[in-house]
Write a protein that binds this DNA or RNA. Structure first.
Lengths: 223, 223
DNA sequence: TTGAATTTCAAACGTTTGTTTGATACGAAC
DNA sequence: GTTCGTATCAAACAAACGTTTGAAATTCAA
């Protein structure tokens, strides 16, 4: 009956989106109940169905109205960092990317939420995956692809460039969403110092690998 | 009452473990019901509580009796590949690792299950995380750390080595559990050719980064 | 063949789930 | 002050959930 209504910017609606996002991020879709969300948002159980129709749709609208805007803020931060460097080299691009994702405009709590949500969709894609793939992942991927392609003086195969971008993203995502494992194995907390260290590492490893900046030119052993 | 019983190797028990693992892997813990598992295993609902006490414990025993043995097979494959190469260099180590995880002893279906399960635990650690951290992740990490340390002629800081290993693992895990995203962005299916390509890429990128094997020695632009 | 232990089963347990209902409260327009 | 569209609420809904029960099968040693 109220199906076509939009309920734009209603207070309760916004509170539900906030709390739902936090809960979905840290426990996963099926582990969170509507009652848990509405109790956290201090409203009635039926508010979810009133404003969003059903639970599944609430989950999608969390991605639409919370996750995507944040992804755009990160993307803009990345572009801004690049704009400050005309004639940028590949290492500038990787650094801007790592900074945008690890130290960018988000608070650390937002960053954790952001990457928990996307890691869930990457591991087990749902309806929301198509949304963020089309609106965030594909555009960002193509954007970086173009930048890197222009910045690389060497001739780079299409596939080689694609796989390299995947690898850089693998690191950035992994250092964000595998925090527990990384803390457990390395002993480092995710403080400012460590995140600086991570950005430097991602740039150097992406550029020079294990060989390192001043690396010797050893020959590979017999294959 | 039957609490201390072990029910070793019972047929029904094994079938439940098999089906539970497959379902937990592809839908996640909370999205799978006991009835779904027992229907798939063609036994009575109460069999889960009879053999495993409760759902949570079944989940843990899946990791104990299915996931861990597979992790050990991968680890053994890795060690075997290294044993065939005396005086191995870092690129041999990375190649052995990538091969063990992407082409190793598992069937492809097993590999997908394996990485879906661990990606769930990495993103949102549960009881099972401590088990696999202690019995698989820490040992493998330390093992690789020792190998790489011995193979690197250059002096490598402790942290630098640690972060490099994380990065290599980030790639290997990412290329395994983000299959949907990677297929969506690159157009590649996970056939034999593509997996060969991935192993080669992981080795080259881990060794030389974007610069590549025959890379020029450009200078970084001004920081 | 007997009898005790183990395994399977249908049925039910009390909760919790997502969703719906119908009544009440609110807020602006007339 | 009345009216009307919107928002909130307690209460209830059927369905599904994890778990328990107690009685039938089944197994197997004596």
């Amino acid at each position: 009956m109220v199906k076509s209504k939009n309920h734009p910017n209603n207070r309760t609606r916004e509170r539900i989106l906030d709390k739902a996002e936090a809960l979905f991020a840290c426990k996963g879709y099926h582990a969170v109940s509507i009652r848990e969300i509405t109790k956290s948002a201090e409203c009635n159980v039926s508010a979810v169905n009133y404003y969003f129709g059903n639970k599944q749709n609430l989950y999608c609208e969390v991605f639409q109205h919370r996750w995507l805007p944040r992804a755009k803020r990160i993307h803009n931060c990345f572009r801004q960092l690049l704009a400050d460097k005309p004639n940028c080299k590949p290492n500038d691009i990787v650094r801007a990317l790592a900074q945008a994702f690890l130290q960018g405009p988000l608070t650390d709590a937002e960053r954790v939420r952001h990457h928990q949500l996307i890691s869930g969709e990457i591991a087990q894609p749902s309806q929301a995956f198509n949304l963020i793939a089309k609106q965030a992942l594909h555009p960002l991927f193509n954007s970086i692809r173009g930048d890197l392609n222009a910045a690389m003086s060497e001739i780079f195969g299409d596939d080689q460039l694609t796989l390299s971008i995947f690898s850089i993203f693998a690191m950035i995502l992994h250092f964000n969403f595998a925090r527990h494992l990384i803390t457990s194995l390395s002993g480092h907390q995710y403080d400012t110092d460590f995140k600086n260290r991570l950005v430097d590492h991602i740039v150097e490893f992406s550029m020079f690998g294990l060989i390192g900046k001043n690396g010797e030119d050893w020959n590979a052993s017999t294959t």
